[in-house]
């Protein structure tokens, strides 16, 4: 049983599929995220694929701030991802609202609406940092699963 679990965990960490959601960012972070997927960084080496579809995704990469208009979309997408899943907040905006923090329509960082697993700071963060963030998230996922209580959707 334990062996099977370990095997599943290894598989999970070897094939993280991304869903990238631009939650009102200035596009700076998005460009860096897309840069990860170019041949220069070649994230497919680690089995990372940008799937663009919550039904297939394991990791939700969110850039930008949450505002009143798009928070519903963000939670909707998160609800459509099958567990186990990770949320990675990218950039200063994703962490706290960044320079948009004071705007009238802004709710704040991603953690205001979703449980965030990894925060990747920067304005924008470098592609290496983003990849690092995803890898960190996967480690967290493994740790979660080695403990008996499995994270479950409420």
């Amino acid at each position: 049983m334990q062996a099977v679990k370990r095997f599943i965990n290894r598989m999970r960490s070897k094939s993280p599929w991304l869903l990238h959601f631009d939650c009102g960012s200035c596009n700076g972070c998005d460009i860096e995220i897309l840069a990860c997927l170019t041949p220069v960084y070649d994230v497919e080496r680690f089995g990372i694929i940008n799937v663009g579809n919550p039904f297939h995704a394991d990791v939700l990469l969110v850039s930008g701030t949450v505002n009143h208009r798009n928070k519903k979309v963000l939670t909707n997408l998160h609800a459509q991802m099958p567990s186990p899943k990770l949320v990675v907040a990218i950039g200063a905006c994703g962490l706290s609202g960044g320079i948009f923090r004071e705007a009238y329509n802004v709710v704040g960082g991603i953690h205001k609406v979703l449980p965030v697993d990894v925060y990747v700071p920067g304005c924008p963060p470098k592609p290496e940092a983003i990849i690092d963030g995803v890898v960190l998230g996967l480690q967290k996922l493994q740790r979660l699963h080695e403990q008996p209580s499995v994270e479950k959707e409420a």
Partner: peptide, 12 residues
């Protein structure tokens, strides 16, 4: 299984 609405770009 968990039943969810179909994909509508998050606007379902």
């Amino acid at each position: 299984s968990r039943i969810v609405p179909a994909y509508m770009s998050g606007l379902q």
